[in-house]
Amino acid sequence: METIRNMFEHLNWANQRILETLQNMEGENKQVTNLFSHILLAEHVWFTRLKGPDSSKLSIWAEVSLRACAELVNQNNQNFKEFLSGLSKPSLEQIVSYRNSKGQEFNNSVRDILTHVALHGQYHRGQINLLLRANEIEPVSVDFISFRR
């Protein structure tokens, strides 16, 4: 449980760092903002799946303003913090059934879903950093070890 909680503390820390960088940039880079909003929308979809409601109609790719991204960062953090605080180690093995956006049904453990959410965001934050560097903007250190330091 401690590892998963650490992963989500890192996830929020990394999202906050990316958000601050985007808020401090001159102008807006739509490609970067769209990637960042994808991370946040996907976090929301996975949280919805963990809680049980149908998520198949929720978008994971949409144009979202930076202001809305800031709200999503805070809401996702609150949602996962509350979810994890009530989660026991045996609950990690519970199977969650859900439908993806194509209506296909899948079944995964809570542990696998939480691990996916943490890794998915880190993958896309790496893409964001590549785009920032291509636009001559200093990439954001979002490495887990930097977070732990």
Results as ranks from 00 to 15, higher is better:
M1R: 04
T3S: 14
T3G: 13
R5H: 10
N6G: 01
M7N: 14
F8K: 01
N12E: 12
W13I: 04
A14I: 02
Q16C: 13
Q16G: 06
R17N: 15
R17T: 09
R17D: 09
L19S: 02
E20A: 14
E20M: 07
E20R: 10
L22M: 09
Q23G: 01
E26K: 12
G27V: 06
E28L: 12
K30I: 13
K30Q: 15
Q31P: 00
Q31S: 13
V32C: 14
T33S: 15
N34K: 08
N34F: 00
F36Y: 12
F36P: 11
I39W: 13
L40T: 00
L41A: 06
A42G: 09
E43L: 01
V45L: 14
V45F: 07
F47P: 06
F47Q: 11
F47S: 04
T48Q: 07
T48I: 06
R49W: 12
L50N: 13
G52V: 10
P53S: 11
P53W: 02
D54H: 08
S56R: 13
S56C: 10
L58Q: 15
L58V: 00
L58D: 13
I60Y: 01
W61T: 08
S65D: 08
S65C: 11
C69M: 02
E71L: 07
E71I: 09
E71F: 04
L72T: 01
V73R: 04
Q75A: 11
N76I: 02
N79F: 03
N79K: 03
F80V: 07
K81H: 10
E82F: 05
E82H: 06
E82G: 03
E82V: 13
F83S: 11
S85Y: 00
S88T: 15
K89Y: 06
P90E: 13
P90V: 05
E93I: 01
I95F: 02
V96P: 09
N100V: 05
S101K: 08
K102I: 01
G103V: 03
G103Q: 02
Q104D: 12
N108L: 05
S109R: 12
V110L: 09
R111Q: 15
I113P: 01
H116E: 08
V117T: 14
V117C: 04
A118P: 13
H120V: 01
G121R: 08
G121I: 03
Q122D: 14
Q122G: 05
Y123E: 03
H124G: 08
I128G: 10
I128H: 14
L130Q: 11
L130T: 15
L132E: 11
R133F: 11
R133Y: 10
A134W: 00
V142L: 00
F144S: 02
S146C: 10
F147V: 04
